[in-house]
């Protein structure tokens, strides 16, 4: 093996030397376009081959299911709680105009917007402060944001159930400071709290990523030109951090809109939200086409938001 290698090496060296000696025009003729093209074609084939297993997997277990939902949304509900695939119509989309559905959609959108705003208000100063720290501190701060980010979502919501419940720690605290016992659990307040708690890292991470990239001298320059703190923020920092604001807002808004676990644990029986309502259509009410139509709408909102996100030049996460 070694011998053949050296031999090969020798002939390669000779080729290289000859190549170096030949004049560039001639060399161009040697590297024929056909050869180059064949090479590129082979590389492309190899790339596709490596991607293929995951590609096929996602086509079967993601793209096909996605199309299935869209197909079902045009089907008709049958008596057995299934869907009749032979009778196509857009009735399920018409049903979306119902007063009840509109209330649910507006309520969910309202809560999701509220969650997004609260997350933004908390995250901005935090992300800004993080960006001003030394690299070592910054990385440490980042890790301690990432840990809750990936940690069991169900359990993190359940923790608030324990805290906010009757006679729970929060109620005892308010009683202790003289407000009397409170019952926050099973209200919209608890739901927003749970959502903020769950999705706060989604806001912090892209915000931090965009603030961290800002050239600090721009802010200094604005201060040198007699901008006060507010003006420097409003006219320099804020516009420059906008991609992060947009990215974070989308990343918080979308899962809040489709939230199911949080309202189920922390919310009451009143005030159904979109995510829970979709689930009900599938698991209890058995109105598959209608549930499918609502899911499709949720997906379209998500896609629109994602396209907006990429338009704004977002690239974090």
């Amino acid at each position: 093996m070694v011998g053949s290698g050296r031999q090969l090496g020798g002939s390669r060296l000779v080729t290289a030397a000859t190549e170096a000696l030949t004049d560039p025009a001639l060399e161009a003729a040697v590297a024929t376009p056909e050869f180059e093209l064949a090479n590129i074609r082979q590389r492309k084939r190899r790339g596709l081959l490596i991607a293929l297993p995951a590609y096929i997997y996602l086509l079967i277990f993601f793209a096909v299911p996605l199309i299935t939902v869209i197909i079902y949304s045009f089907a008709t509900r049958n008596r057995f709680g299934g869907a009749d695939l032979n009778n196509w119509n857009i009735d399920s989309y018409r049903e979306l105009g119902d007063d009840l559905i509109r209330t649910i959609l507006l309520r969910s959108a309202g809560l999701a917007i509220l969650t997004t705003i609260i997350c933004l208000l908390i995250s901005y100063p935090f992300a800004y402060y993080m960006a001003t720290r030394s690299e070592k501190v910054r990385n440490l701060m980042l890790v301690f944001v990432m840990i809750p980010f990936w940690t069991n979502f169900l359990v993190r919501n359940y923790a608030w159930y324990v805290i906010l419940g009757t006679d729970g720690p929060f109620s005892q605290f308010t009683e202790f400071i003289g407000f009397g016992p409170t019952r926050v659990l099973f209200t919209q307040v608890a739901v927003v709290l749970g959502l903020v708690y769950g999705f706060l890292p989604f806001m912090i991470l892209p915000l931090y990523a965009s603030i961290e990239r800002i050239d600090g001298r721009l802010i200094e320059a604005s201060r040198d030109l007699y901008a006060n703190g507010w003006q420097a923020f409003r006219n320099v920092l804020w516009p420059l951090s906008l991609p992060g604001v947009v990215a974070g807002s989308i990343l918080v808004f979308i899962p809040s809109l489709g939230a199911y676990v949080t309202p189920h644990i922390l919310g009451g029986t009143k005030g159904t939200l979109l995510g829970s309502y979709i689930v009900t259509q599938f698991l209890t009410a058995r109105n598959l086409p209608f549930g499918a139509a609502m899911s499709t709408v949720l997906m379209i909102i998500m896609l629109a938001a994602t396209i907006l996100y990429f338009r704004k030049g977002g690239r974090t996460l």
């Binding site: 277990f61 993601f62 096909v64 299911p65 996605l66 299935t68 939902v69 079902y72 990343l251 979308i254 899962p255 809109l257 489709g258 939230a259 199911y260 676990v261 995510g275 979709i278 689930v279 599938f282 598959l288 549930g291 499918a292 899911s295 949720l298 997906m299 998500m302 994602t306 996460l317």
Partner: peptide, 15 residues
């Protein structure tokens, strides 16, 4: 990654 849980769950259920 970005699709809400509920949507993906519905997709796979029907599928």
């Amino acid at each position: 990654v970005i699709i809400p849980d509920v949507t993906m769950a519905v997709m796979l259920l029907l599928f």
